[in-house]
């Protein structure tokens, strides 16, 4: 069964979509879209370094993404530049550094498009093992960190006053993000990872009454997007990574038009005074 490239692609894509759901919810709740983007962009530097030292690609990407996020944490403490500006610097300079390094390495042939926009149809059995193994690790980590992460999303001081360790949870969350980016890169590519984090979570908001439900819904919606995107790509002979994102977008748009299941809307603190 795994001999078929399309089956392998489906398996890999579904594994990534399930993993991405809960993390994507936190990215949306904590307004960290740009942060996710920065970590994803740094993956190209990770790819370049992996080729340079001839190590496993996912390991290289994980290490660089983790380093970039810790650099960000340290720079934030200095409070010299705004987080926004810091993210802008890290995001684009790591991407540019990666591109320049790759250009210097004339001895390796790198399919740049595959890294930037995904190459899901080329996943191997080893990739699938990494995706499902890494994904299980990420999900276990999120489950373990769920309460402190959610509490500090609501209010970090409250969480800390009541005996949790928001800072520790935050560092662990960044490591999980780095791991996720390492395994998701091949599916949708560096430039599109953030969309897989955000679009299914944003779609799930409409249909969820609790944070836990939203995390599960985001995973399910991600799976639907991956499956329909892949079949669409097969049908219309379109690039697979972007097709998945387009499918996710379509689901999001439909969810916005669909009749409201439960009352919700972007009017915090008003509209509901009984």
């Amino acid at each position: 069964m795994l001999d078929d490239f399309f089956t392998r692609a489906l398996l890999a894509g579904i594994g990534v979509a399930i993993t991405v759901g809960p993390l994507g919810c936190f990215i949306v709740w904590r307004r960290m879209a740009y942060f996710g983007d920065t970590m994803a962009h740094s993956a190209l530097l990770g790819v370049a370094i992996a080729f340079l030292f001839d190590i496993n690609l996912m390991v290289g990407v994980f290490v660089v993404a983790a380093l970039v996020s810790s650099a960000l944490l340290l720079l934030q403490r200095r409070q010299s530049l705004s987080t926004d500006a810091l993210l802008g610097i890290l995001s684009h300079s790591t991407l540019a550094l990666g591109l320049v390094m790759v250009a210097f390495m004339t001895w390796v042939r790198i399919d740049l498009m595959g890294f930037l926009f995904g190459d899901i149809l080329a996943v191997s059995r080893t990739d699938i093992a990494f995706i499902w193994g890494g994904g299980a690790l990420v999900l276990a980590g999120v489950a373990w960190l769920w309460r402190p992460l959610l509490a500090s999303t609501v209010n970090a001081e409250l969480a800390e006053a009541e005996g949790m360790h928001p800072e520790r949870a935050r560092v662990a969350f960044m490591l999980l993000m780095a791991l996720l980016i390492a395994i998701a890169m091949k599916i949708v590519g560096i430039l599109l990872i953030t969309s897989l984090l955000i679009i299914p979570a944003a779609t799930a908001r409409r249909f969820s009454g609790t944070p836990e439900m939203m995390a599960v819904m985001a995973s399910l919606i991600g799976v639907v997007a991956v499956v329909s995107g892949l079949f669409g790509s097969l049908q219309f002979d379109t690039p697979s990574g972007p097709s998945i994102v387009v499918a996710a977008l379509a689901l999001f748009l439909v969810s916005q038009i669909a009749p409201v299941v439960r009352r919700s809307g972007p009017q915090p603190q008003e509209g509901g005074r009984r």
Binding site: W29, R30, T153, V154, L158, A159, A201, A202, R205
Partner: peptide, 16 residues
Amino acid sequence: IDWTLPLSVRRLMTLT
């Protein structure tokens, strides 16, 4: 609390 976070009063009670 960001409105994207679906949090009922009852769920808020068991936050920590």
